[in-house]
Simulated assay, not measured.
Amino acid sequence: MRALVIDDSRAMRTILTRTMDSLGFEVEAVGDGAQALEAVQRGPLPDVCLIDWNMPVMNGLEFIVEVRKNRDWRDITLMMVTTEAEQANIVRALAAGAHEYVIKPFTTEIIEDKLSMLGLL
């Protein structure tokens, strides 16, 4: 299984990469939504993307909208992992096509539980 970690924080990319690696995923990490879109276009397609909301160039919500425009990418599982905790933002992300929403700070167990619920573990 392949995971794409999308976060502008180097520390958070490291934490999520280690978490996903420990769960058996092959991981690529990038710093913004535009880099993530390039990675998806380049392939191979990730099984899951872990996406921060607030990033330069292209934010997480914009990335989700772009991914959902392409039918060839409909099987990619999209999970927000962000500090954005407002109910309205959670609703916006899920309405745009995110499958799950994790609010930072999180534990490895939370990520593992969400991935299990999504059928990825």
Rank of each mutant, 00 (worst) to 15 (best):
M1S: 14
M1Y: 12
R2V: 13
R2Q: 15
A3E: 02
L4S: 01
V5H: 02
I6N: 01
I6A: 02
D7W: 01
A11F: 12
M12D: 01
M12T: 05
M12F: 04
R13K: 13
T14P: 07
T17V: 13
R18H: 15
R18N: 15
T19C: 03
M20P: 01
D21P: 01
S22N: 13
S22T: 12
G24V: 08
F25K: 03
E26Q: 14
V27G: 05
E28S: 15
E28R: 15
A29M: 08
D32Y: 04
A34F: 13
Q35C: 13
A36V: 09
E38D: 10
E38P: 01
A39L: 10
V40F: 04
V40Q: 04
R42M: 08
G43E: 12
P44A: 07
P44Q: 07
P46S: 05
D47A: 11
V48R: 07
V48F: 07
C49Q: 03
L50T: 07
I51A: 04
V57N: 03
V57D: 01
M58A: 10
N59P: 03
G60A: 08
L61D: 04
E62R: 06
E62P: 02
F63G: 05
I64E: 05
V65W: 06
V67H: 00
R68L: 07
K69E: 09
R71N: 15
D72C: 11
W73K: 07
W73M: 07
W73H: 06
R74T: 14
I76Y: 05
L78P: 01
L78V: 13
M79I: 15
M80N: 05
V81D: 01
V81E: 02
T82R: 05
T82W: 03
E84S: 11
A85M: 10
A85P: 05
E86W: 12
A88M: 14
I90T: 10
I90W: 06
V91E: 11
A95H: 14
A96I: 04
A96G: 04
A98Q: 06
A98P: 03
E100C: 08
Y101F: 11
Y101S: 03
I103W: 04
I103Q: 00
K104E: 00
F106Y: 08
T107N: 08
T107S: 13
T107Y: 09
E109M: 14
E109L: 14
E109T: 14
I111S: 00
E112L: 02
D113V: 08
D113C: 07
S116T: 14
M117F: 15
M117D: 15
M117Q: 15
G119T: 06
L120Q: 07
